[in-house]
Lab assay of single mutants.
Amino acid sequence: KWTITVQGEEAIKWAIKVAEARNLDYTVHIDGDQAHITIE
Rank of each mutant, 00 (worst) to 15 (best):
T5H: 09
H29L: 12
E9F: 12
A15G: 01
E40I: 15
R22M: 15
I4V: 09
E20P: 01
I4H: 03
E20R: 04
E20I: 12
D33N: 11
E40Q: 13
I4Y: 10
V6I: 09
Q34E: 08
Y26W: 08
I39E: 00
L24W: 15
D33L: 08
A21Q: 12
I4C: 08
D25F: 13
T5N: 04
E10P: 05
T38G: 02
A15P: 00
V18P: 00
K13Y: 09
E9N: 07
W2H: 05
T3G: 02
W2S: 03
K1V: 11
I12K: 04
T38M: 07
I4Q: 02
I30M: 12
V28W: 06
R22F: 15
Q34H: 12
E10C: 13
A35E: 02
K13W: 10
V28R: 00
A19P: 00
E9M: 12
A35S: 03
V28E: 01
A35K: 03
V6T: 02
I16F: 03
Q34L: 15
I37G: 00
V18R: 06
E40D: 11
T38N: 03
H29M: 13
I16R: 02
K13E: 10
T27K: 09
K17M: 14
E9L: 13
T38L: 06
G32W: 04
H29V: 15
D33T: 10
G32C: 07
E40F: 15
V6G: 02
G32Q: 04
A11C: 15
V28T: 02
K13H: 06
H36I: 15
I30Y: 15
A21N: 13
A15Y: 13
I16D: 01
T5Y: 10
I16K: 03
K13D: 06
E9K: 09
G8A: 03
L24T: 03
I16T: 04
T27C: 09
K17F: 11
L24N: 03
T38K: 04
A11E: 07
T5M: 08
E40H: 15
A21R: 06
V6F: 06
V28Y: 04
G8Y: 03
N23G: 15
D31M: 11
A11G: 07
G32K: 05
V18M: 14
G8V: 04
R22H: 15
I30L: 11
N23Q: 12
Q7D: 04
A19W: 04
A11M: 11
I16G: 01
T38C: 04
K17W: 12
T27D: 05
T3H: 08
E20C: 11
R22V: 14
V6S: 01
T3V: 13
A19G: 02
T5D: 03
L24D: 04
D31Q: 10
Y26V: 05
K17S: 14
D33G: 08
E10S: 08
T27L: 05
A35T: 07
E10A: 12
I30N: 04
E9P: 09
T27M: 07
R22W: 15
E40K: 12
I37F: 14
G8K: 02
H29S: 10
L24E: 05
A11I: 04
D25T: 14
T5Q: 07
I16Q: 04
E20Q: 08
V18T: 08
G8R: 02
I30F: 13
D25I: 15
Y26K: 00
I12V: 06
D31G: 03
I12W: 05
K13G: 06
H36C: 05
R22C: 13
I37H: 00
V6P: 00
W14D: 06
H36P: 01
W2D: 01
T27Q: 07
A21W: 11
E10I: 10
A21L: 13
E10F: 10
D25Q: 14
E9C: 12
V6K: 00
V6H: 01
E20S: 05
G32S: 04
W14Y: 08
A21V: 07
V18L: 13
A11N: 12
W14M: 10
A11V: 04
Q7R: 13
N23C: 13
I37T: 00
D31Y: 10
G8P: 01
E40P: 05
T27P: 01
E20W: 04
V6N: 00
I30T: 05
T3K: 07
R22L: 15
I30S: 04
N23E: 11
T38Y: 08
T5E: 04
A19R: 00
A21E: 15
R22D: 12
I4M: 06
T3S: 07
Y26P: 00
Q7E: 08
T5L: 08
I39R: 00
G8M: 04
I39Y: 10
T27G: 03
A35Q: 03
V18F: 15
I4A: 02
E10G: 07
I12E: 01
G8T: 05
T5K: 06
W2E: 02
R22I: 15
H29I: 15
V18S: 07
Q34G: 09
K1L: 08
A15H: 06
G32L: 04
A19N: 01
T3I: 12
A19K: 02
G8I: 05
D33E: 11
T5G: 02
H29Y: 13
A21T: 11
T5F: 09
D31C: 11
W14T: 06
T38I: 13
I12A: 02
A35W: 12
A21M: 13
E20T: 10
I37R: 00
V28A: 03
I39M: 08
N23Y: 07
V18H: 11
I12M: 09
T27V: 11
V18I: 13
W14R: 08
D31R: 07
A35M: 08
